[in-house]
Computed example of a mutant assay.
Amino acid sequence: MQQDTIEISGFHAHVYFDTTSRDVAERVREGLGERFEVRLGRWHDKLIGPHPKAMYQVAFLPNQFEKVVPWLMLNREGLDILIHPETGDDVKDHTEHALWLGEKLELNIGFLQQIGKT
C-alpha cells in the first residue's frame, strides 16, 4: 500500500560526531542555524535512544527539505547524518523511511520498538 506524503509532519536530521569531529559538527550546526528555519536540538555527548554515537538533532518542516538536505549533502564535512520523516511510526521512520549521508550506522531499533509499545 502506498502512503501519501501528507502524513509527514516534519523531518529530523541526526548529526553524529565524536570527540575528534565535534568542532566539525559545531560548524555544520552553525551553518544550519544561520541559513535555515530549523530547530536545533541539544548536544548529546552520551548515547541516547536508538543512536549509536554522540549526536544532535535538527528538526525541520517538510517545506524546508529541498533546501536543508541538499545543503547537508554538500556541507556535512564527512559527518554521518541520518535524515528521517516524522509520520508517527518511529521504527519505520528510522529504518524503511530513512536516508543516510555518509556511513549508515547501526541503530538500536529495539529501543524504538519498546517505546512504541508504551
Rank of each mutant, 00 (worst) to 15 (best):
F36Q: 04
F11S: 07
H14C: 05
A25C: 09
R22A: 14
Q2T: 11
L32E: 06
P52H: 06
D18A: 00
H44L: 12
L32F: 02
L79G: 04
H94E: 07
G116A: 14
T87S: 03
P52T: 08
V91C: 02
I81F: 04
R39Q: 14
A13P: 00
V28G: 03
W43Y: 10
F36C: 06
V24H: 04
N108K: 15
V69Q: 11
D45S: 11
I8C: 09
Q2L: 13
P50F: 00
L32V: 10
P70V: 02
R76D: 06
L74D: 14
L105R: 08
V91Q: 01
I115N: 09
G10K: 01
S21H: 10
R42P: 08
F11W: 15
V24I: 15
V68K: 00
I48M: 10
R42E: 15
V24S: 10
A98F: 05
Q64A: 15
Q113G: 02
T118P: 08
P62V: 07
F60D: 01
D89L: 03
A13V: 04
K117T: 15
V38G: 08
A13E: 02
H14G: 03
P70S: 00
D89S: 06
M1N: 12
T5K: 13
W43S: 01
Q64S: 13
V28C: 03
V68I: 00
G33M: 05
R29C: 01
R76E: 07
R27Q: 15
G49R: 06
V91Y: 03
